[in-house]
Amino acid sequence: MLRTALSSAMAIALGYGAASWLTHDFQVWTDEGARRLEVALKPIASPDIAIHGPTTAATTLPALLAGEGGVTIVDFVYTRCVTACLALGSVFQQIQQALLADAAAGQRDRVRLLSISFDLARDDDAALASYAARLHADPGVWRFVRPMDAAGLSALLRRWGVVVLDAPFGEFEHNAALLVIDRHGRMVRVFDLSEQQLALDYARHLARSVP
């Protein structure tokens, strides 16, 4: 019976260890939660992939993110989206408004917005431009780009933990979120769509702090 108690205790200890590893000491239960926690603990650099967009000449993602020395809030979209990206669009519209108000009030914090499309088959420059126009995006604040090729796209999605699924009717399902990228092009935080004020305040704070 002592042996049985011992082996039972070992099974429980093993399970506890596994669960504790999986959940980062019982803080998160989902992979998305783990992704957000891991990013906050350890920033993830942007992969060196080629991108371009209607108002952005061909360049690389790190160059675009680091080029102007500001903080960027990134979201992933596809222009035909009628679900999550619509919410993302209106979140970005509201953040854009706040940023334009900041600029009008003379604040010089450099926070910008970047929407990256993952629908390479349909989102060409024209589609992105009309999407930007529909959302009244100000090109000085909010830009739209897409990776040049599928290999670059999958490298980007994998690196930053974006999971895109095919959904019925040619739609996509994805873990839509607000990604805050620091001035060195590293993803430093992932915020939920419902945390737009937090994301904006965090980005402003990062932009203000030197260097």
Partner: peptide
């Protein structure tokens, strides 16, 4: 059975 119950509990964590 203890092992089985513990393993199933761990395997049902959504992250798995």
């Amino acid at each position: 059975l203890v092992f089985c119950a513990v393993a199933l509990a761990v395997l049902m964590i959504p992250r798995v």
